[in-house]
Every structure is written in C-alpha cells, then in structure tokens.
Simulated scan of single mutants.
Amino acid sequence: MVHSMAITKDGALFYWVSSDPHLRCQQLYSLCEKTIVSISAGKYWAATATAIGDVYMWDGKKSMDKPPIVATRLHRVKGKKIP
C-alpha cells in the first residue's frame, strides 16, 4: 500500500492511496481548519505539522481503501522547532 499527500500554498492537506483505482485526491477534513506546513509519510503511517506547532499522525495501514477520517494530535511536542 502506498499513500501520498500534498499541501497547498494556503496549508490545505490532500491525501490519496494507491488502492483507489481512480486515484481520487481528497482533502483530509479533520484537519481542514488547520494550516499544514509540513508532511511526512511512511509505509503505514502519516504525519503533519501545523503552523502553530501541533503535530498530528494517523495509521495509514487502517486507511488502505480510503483516506483517514481522524488524525490524532500528539501531545508534548507543541512549541518544539520543526526543521
């Protein structure tokens, strides 16, 4: 399973998965009120950082057929410098 993400200039996050035969790119609505400044994805996970320093992650393995609905905010990382 391969998943990909992209962010727009205004900080919106879009996500798609290789198992989607139509390769539909969808916005991750649980983060649509956030300004995303950084993204990262591994084989089975994905993460984002917001403009105010919040970090969110979700399990990409559970989202093989569709984008995830909820991303989990990680605690105790706010205020850390994101390179």
Rank of each mutant, 00 (worst) to 15 (best):
V77S: 01
G53S: 04
Y29T: 14
K62I: 00
C32D: 14
T48Q: 03
D59V: 08
M57S: 14
C32E: 14
T50V: 15
S30C: 15
V70M: 08
Y56D: 07
I36T: 05
A47K: 03
V55E: 04
P68D: 05
A41W: 01
T35D: 02
M64K: 13
A51I: 02
E33F: 00
A47G: 11
A49Y: 02
L31K: 06
V37C: 03
R76T: 04
Y56G: 11
P67F: 01
G60Q: 10
Y29N: 10
G42K: 05
M64G: 13
Y29W: 15
A41F: 02
T50C: 08
I36S: 02
S30K: 11
P68M: 11
M64V: 13
T72I: 09
G60L: 09
D59R: 11
P68T: 09
C32H: 09
A49T: 08
W58K: 10
L28Q: 10
T35E: 13
V77A: 01
I69W: 03
G60W: 09
K62E: 14
D59M: 09
I39P: 01
I69A: 10
Y29A: 13
D59Y: 11
V55K: 03
P67Q: 09
G60A: 15
R73H: 03
S38P: 00
M57C: 15
K43R: 04
V55L: 11
T50W: 07
C32G: 01
A47H: 02
S30E: 07
G42L: 09
V37Q: 00
R73G: 01
D59I: 06
V70G: 04
P67R: 11
H75W: 02
W58R: 09
A49Q: 04
S63A: 15
V37N: 00
G53K: 02
M64E: 14
Y29K: 14
K43I: 04
K62H: 06
K62V: 05
S40H: 08
M64D: 13
L74W: 05
P67S: 08
T72A: 04
R76M: 03
T48M: 03
G42E: 04
A46K: 10
P67C: 08
D54V: 00
I52C: 15
T72W: 02
K66E: 12
V77R: 04
I69S: 12
T48P: 03
L28V: 15
A41R: 08
T35M: 02
H75K: 08
D54I: 01
D59W: 10
A71L: 07
A46N: 15
K66F: 10
R73F: 03
T48L: 05
A51F: 03
S38G: 05
M64L: 12
A51T: 01
S63W: 05
D54G: 01
A46E: 11
V70N: 12
K43H: 05
Y44M: 11
Y44K: 12
E33R: 09
M64N: 10
G42C: 02
V37G: 00
W58S: 13
W58H: 13
K34F: 05
R76Q: 09
W45D: 06
A71F: 02
W58P: 09
